[in-house]
C-alpha cells in the first residue's frame, strides 16, 4: 500500500491497461504531450507514443463517435471529454448511438468504450467548468455511469470500466483529483462496476453519496459522531446500474435516508434513491427522506461567495445529518 491522489489512481489505471491490452488507446483534447489539463495522462504519450495516445481535434461529438467506431472494430478506446460541461455536443453519440448500439443491433455489436470526464464545482470554474451531469446520463439505459470517490476505487473501477463490453461514462470529481488522497494497493486489482460500498457502518441514519460529496460526508460523519450520531455511509460508486440491494439494506437498518449530491436538486439522482426507498422499503421509513443538493439555478457561478452559496459543503452536510437524526 502507498498513499496516492485520486488523479494518480486514474493515471495508474490507464498506464496498466495500456500495458496489458494493445487494443486500449486514449483520445481526447490535450491528452498527448500536454498530459491532459489535469495531468491525468501525464507521461503516457512519452511511454506509448502517438498511435496509442491520440490528441483529437477539438470536436466532442466525434471524440465519442470515433470511439464508438473503433470499439466496434475491436478496440477499447478511452475517450476523454475535458470537462463535463463540454460533453453536451456529444450527447447524441453517447445516448442515441453508444448506449443503444447493443440493443438496436440485436446484440451483433457492442461498444466497449470508456468516456472519462472531470465533473463538479467548487474550483472557481464558473458556469462551464463546474457542471455535474450524472442525472442526465444515469437516465439512459445501456450506458453505465461510474463515479469514484477515492484513489483506490478510481483505479480499480477505471480498470473494470476499460474491460467492460459496454459504454461507461466515468465521471471524475475534479476538485478531488489532488485533494483526495488514500491508500492504493500494490499490484493488480479491480473494483466491480454496479456495486455500492458501505464505507462507514452506523445505526442512526444512512447517507448516500458519491464522488466529492462522499469525501465531504466522511468528514461530516466524523463530526456528528462526536455528538453521538451514528452515520452509515453508502458510496454509490456506480449510478447505473444501481446496486439496489446495498441501498435498500442500509435503509432497512436505519430507516432514515439523506442523499447528498452537488448536481441540481430537481430530478437529480437523489430523487431516484428516494423513489426506490419509498417503493421497496416504505415500511422501514422512520423519517422523511432528505436531499441535500445543488440549487436549481442554471449552473455554478464563478464569484467566490456565489460559488460557496451553490456548493454543498461539510458544514451543510453536518446540519442535514443532525436534522435527520433528530427527526
Amino acid at each position: 500500500m502507498s498513499e496516492k491522489t485520486l488523479v494518480e489512481g486514474i493515471r495508474e489505471a490507464l498506464d496498466e491497461e495500456l500495458a496489458r491490452d494493445p487494443n486500449v488507446f486514449i483520445t481526447g483534447t490535450d491528452i498527448g504531450p500536454r498530459g491532459g489539463v489535469f495531468l491525468a495522462t501525464q507521461g503516457l504519450y512519452a511511454k506509448y507514443g502517438p498511435r496509442r495516445i491520440i490528441d483529437s481535434p477539438l470536436a466532442e461529438s466525434s471524440i465519442i463517435g470515433v470511439g464508438i467506431g473503433a470499439a466496434m472494430n475491436g478496440m477499447r478506446p478511452v475517450c476523454e471529454i475535458q470537462f463535463a460541461d463540454f460533453i453536451h455536443p456529444a450527447y447524441n453519440q453517447i445516448v442515441n448511438e453508444a448506449a443503444r448500439m447493443f440493443y438496436r443491433s440485436g446484440g451483433q455489436y457492442c461498444v466497449p468504450l470508456v468516456i472519462r470526464c472531470p465533473y463538479g464545482g467548487g474550483v472557481g470554474g464558473g458556469l462551464y467548468h463546474s457542471q455535474s451531469v450524472e442525472a442526465t446520463f444515469a437516465h439512459v439505459p445501456g450506458l453505465k455511469v461510474v463515479i469514484p470517490s477515492n484513489p483506490r476505487d478510481a483505479k480499480g473501477l477505471l480498470k473494470s470500466a476499460i474491460r467492460d463490453n459496454n459504454p461507461v461514462l466515468f465521471l471524475e470529481p475534479k476538485k478531488g483529483y489532488r485533494a483526495i488522497k488514500g491508500e492504493v494497493p500494490e499490484g493488480e486489482y479491480t473494483e466491480p462496476l454496479g456495486v455500492a460500498k458501505v464505507t462507514r457502518a452506523g445505526d442512526d441514519i444512512t447517507v448516500y453519496a458519491y464522488g466529492m460529496m462522499h469525501f465531504y460526508c466522511v468528514q461530516a460523519a466524523d463530526q456528528v459522531a462526536e455528538e453521538g450520531i451514528s452515520v452509515e455511509l453508502v458510496d454509490l460508486r456506480t449510478l447505473n446500474p444501481l446496486d439496489k440491494a446495498t441501498v435498500l439494506q442500509s435503509f432497512k437498518k436505519t430507516g432514515k435516508a439523506l442523499i447528498v449530491y452537488e448536481d441540481n436538486r430537481f430530478v437529480g439522482f437523489g430523487a431516484e434513491i428516494a423513489a426506490l426507498l419509498c417503493e421497496e422499503a416504505f415500511e422501514h421509513m422512520d423519517a422523511p427522506i432528505m436531499r441535500l443538493a445543488g440549487p436549481d439555478v442554471p449552473a455554478v457561478p464563478y464569484s467566490r461567495p456565489l460559488q460557496d452559496w451553490f456548493m454543498p459543503d461539510v458544514q451543510r452536510i453536518v446540519e442535514a445529518m443532525r436534522k435527520l437524526a433528530a427527526y
Binding site: 463517435g65 467506431g69 472494430n73 475491436g74 447524441n92 448511438e97
Partner: peptide
C-alpha cells in the same frame, strides 16, 4: 447498424477506419 438521426454513422465510420 443504421441509425435514424442522419450523419451519426460518419464519426463512427472514421473510428472503424482509425482502428
Amino acid at each position: 447498424s443504421v441509425s435514424s438521426p442522419v450523419g451519426t454513422q460518419l464519426p463512427q465510420a472514421a473510428g472503424l477506419a482509425l482502428a
